[in-house]
């Protein structure tokens, strides 16, 4: 896997009047990367994606796609770009085949290769049987697939997907995720979503934007390091007083659900598990379960955006 830089966004800002939708955002994507783009509603995700896809001009800064500057040489840059907006840009009165042929033509695929390109895109998106159906009659999930097929029909170096799994059923979601992972092997993919497990499932980089500014750019494996506290899940038969555990060294906070289950937040690297077990044995709390919780993206998301956990949970 070569690690050529496919997208280079440098110091991009975008203002709507006095409102800064995106402020001084810079990042790069290499070939073979899937970048998950997270943020609360209205944080600037879609604006950023519109800028990268050439649908919106940045107020300042520059975007380079596969070596072509998006503003100076838009045609070459856009040829290397596939974009699926939040609502797929479909013509409901066309059939899937007609639509994909049109997209192929728009992307300047030579006439002779269009049928092949269409077949490949349909194959990848699981649309082989849908070719002759009217897009307007397709279910939401299939329309979404047509949207993705449209974005990859010309084999662009960069694929930008804005919330591609919205409105799909669980099986379709799995298929689309598998497709995204597949795309990530040969293309650079930017995926915007607010479904956090999705990011952990398909992305190898995560980026969180909050109020127009990037607050995190990290590899998935590096996430644990960024979390300010680690968590232990402990369960007791006889619910103890959380204050006793809170007094242990390294423990920040203890949350109790009232039925004997506790979540213990502690300093990373200062695992209080042993101390808790010892204490539980002394006081006969009847401990029957203790496990470290994986540093979750959700936790990090909430920490970084200072937001309401409800927003993150509602998305899952």
């Amino acid at each position: 896997m070569s690690d050529a830089v496919l997208v280079e966004v440098s110091h991009v800002s975008r203002f709507y009047g006095a409102l800064a939708a995106v402020r001084d955002v810079s990042f790069t994507i290499h070939r073979g990367e899937v970048l998950g783009f997270l943020g609360p509603n209205g944080a600037g995700k879609t604006t950023t994606m519109q800028i990268i896809s050439g649908n919106l001009a940045p107020s300042s800064g520059s975007v380079t796609i596969a070596g072509h500057d998006l503003l100076a040489d838009p045609r070459a840059a856009k040829a290397e770009l596939g974009y699926l907006p939040e609502s797929p840009p479909l013509y409901r009165e066309l059939t899937v085949d007609e639509y994909l042929d049109y997209c192929a033509a728009l992307n300047r695929i030579p006439r002779g290769q269009r049928a092949q390109a269409r077949a490949t895109a349909k194959e990848k998106c699981g649309l082989h049987d849908a070719g002759r159906r009217l897009i307007g009659n397709l279910s939401k999930g299939f329309q979404q697939r047509v949207g993705i097929a449209q974005a990859i029909i010309h084999m662009p170096a960069v694929v930008i997907l804005d919330e591609p799994t919205v409105g799909l059923d669980p099986i379709q979601i799995r298929e689309i995720r598998a497709l995204i992972r597949e795309l990530g092997k040969t293309h650079g993919v930017i995926l915007s979503t607010h479904i956090l497990p999705e990011v952990q499932a398909v992305c190898d980089h995560v980026q969180i934007i909050h109020k127009g500014a990037l607050v995190l750019h990290e590899r998935i494996e590096g996430l644990a390091r960024r979390v300010k506290s680690a968590t232990l899940a402990v369960a007791f038969r006889a619910a103890p007083d959380p204050a006793l555990i809170e007094r242990l060294p390294g423990v920040h906070k203890v949350e109790s659900d009232g039925a004997g289950r506790l979540r213990v937040f502690h300093e990373p690297g200062q695992d209080p598990a042993e101390a808790i077990v010892r204490l539980a044995a002394e006081k006969c709390w009847g401990i029957y379960e203790i496990a470290p919780e994986r540093a979750s993206l959700e936790q990090l998301f909430v920490e970084l955006t200072g937001g309401e956990p409800a927003a993150a949970e509602a998305a899952t």
Binding site: S53, N55, P74, R75, K78, P85, P89, L106, Q150
Partner: peptide
């Protein structure tokens, strides 16, 4: 209105 302009805007055409 149908937000299909994005298709044209992100294609390599002027």
């Amino acid at each position: 209105r149908n937000r299909t302009l994005a298709l044209l805007f992100s294609a390599p055409i002027s």
